[in-house]
Design a protein around this nucleic acid. Sequence first.
RNA 1: GCCCCCAUCGUCUAGCCCGGCCCAGGACACCGGCUUUUCAAGCCGAGAACAGGGGUUCAAAUCCCCUUGGGGGUACCA
Length: 568
Amino acid sequence: MPQTIVTRFAPSPTGALHVGGARTALYNWAFAKRHGGKFLLRLEDTDQARSSDAAADAMLKDLAWIGLDWDNANDVPRQSQRLHLYNAAIEKLLSAGKAYEDNGAIRFKIPAEPISFHDEVRGDVTIPAGQTEDFVIRKTDGFPTYHLAVVVDDADMGVTHVLRAQEHLSNTPKHILLQNALGLPRPTYAHFGLILNQDGSKMSKRDKSKTAQQELRRWLDQGGNIEWFAEECVSRNDFIDMIGKSEDSAKKVSPQDIKEFLTKKSSEYSELDVKDIPERIAEVLGFTLPEIDVADFRESGYLPDTLCNYLALLGWNPGNDLEKFDNTFLAGNFSLDRVNKGDSKFDREKLASFNSDAINEMPVDELAIEFAERLFHAYGMPPNPGLKYLLTEKDYQLWDNAIHHVGVGEGQRLPTSPPPIASGAKKFDMEHCRLLAEIYRPRSKTLCDPVKLGKFFFDWNLYAPDQYDPKAVDKILKKNDNEGLKVLAQLQQTLNNVADADWNEQSIEAAVKLFAEANALGLGKVAQPLRVAVSGSTVSPGIGQTLTILGKQETLQRIANCLALCGQ
RNA sequence: GCCCCCAUCGUCUAGCCCGGCCCAGGACACCGGCUUUUCAAGCCGAGAACAGGGGUUCAAAUCCCCUUGGGGGUACCA
């Protein structure tokens, strides 16, 4: 009887699951599924200082979100709770003279022999003797190191195949030596390439700090006020303490200071306990951080299936021109001999393209719900009859909390910016969400796009001139002696003549076309001024669709206000 | 420094193991065109690569060697 294949994913819960880890998990999962084996999870929390329960929970949640399931869900082992196993192994090595004490730690004595092993993706790998020094297997805090724990656990859990990224390739000899010394079986190994940034550096959480650092530096160089920043970002005193400068020496803040600032954990500052500093800086300064973690992609509006598809393709392919596939396909076709050896650069454009295609294929109703939820998150504005039924209890609380703070708290930070008073908000129910979902489906790269692109539909202040793009106003409305404004003024009557009952795409377009013909104007000369009047810019979906969603009253009101605001 | 790994269009890659069907195929991006009331979408089309040098062979992207380039490791992190 052939052995049952057992794979595992063993993250250390020191932070969110990043895409590299997700891909490793996906491959292990797919490999096990493909061979009817088991896929197990294990939490490697032997670094007491950096591990946390919150991170562990988030990790599991992210894995579930990308569609993975594991066979030991009832009892995911945590290394911190299996010290007895490691201690037993260490005792065994000690008494066999294969390990020794050194300053309170225990080191493994490396046998002086070259070590070679077979790697399923790389072939035979040999490391000459004397390359590795005696390494620590038990730290002074009594916890085992990664190397010891991995070897003991993999054997204990019956892991037959270890599939991981190349960063572990040079650790493998250590593990094999340990297995030999402990009389444990050697699993089959396979190491694949790393996921890199476009510039060739390793894609890691550090990239967020790097971006934040660059942006902050640039902002300061352009005359940004460090005092204001400090006040907004953390409390000012914390910031001053942190960089160890006197209060009025903003100019002396060096890149090094910023770097240190960014690498500190947010938990060290009283004002910040939820968000990490790069996130906070991005929020304060208004730029976006690169997505690195699975959760980042989720928040940015990527579909889990798409993420998996793209990630799987980054280092594996089915061997033909097929690129679009789901996890089920992966589970049925994944094989190690088609895994690439080289590293691969993460191409956000291609991921976005895949995501865009996937959104295009989503049922409109499904997109409408996604849209409604994101609308709520951005504006705390549940469409009538209420998103309440679509929201989780927690989200609802968040919203409830948010609206009660609107315009109240001085210096009080809301989870999101306070909802602007939208003149059309009252009317924004699920049906409107559905309409917008339909319109924005073909033009969205992410699930967030309908909210961003359709902003003018629900986030509109009738009395704010600054929401009109000045360039659009000049070019479309004022150019040629207020040509556009004149058209707009006439259009009021034309649109008003469309009966309420006929306020739909066809009738509106027909009316607009008729008007254009009657006045010997190109359609663009009519539609563009209209577009600017109701959306503030030259970009919107088809004019008929746009006006239909806005409704007759809102449309006429916006036109009237536009004439008043831009007509001077 | 030392050790290990890797190397096809800008990017992800097919082809390489079992040399000839490959003056190298697909996808994303880019560029051009069609469509068009804007922006997208859609459709059509173009450009774009075997890192370099030596071998082996009738024949090399495919096999061998060297060089160069990239990555990883070298922790009481995992």
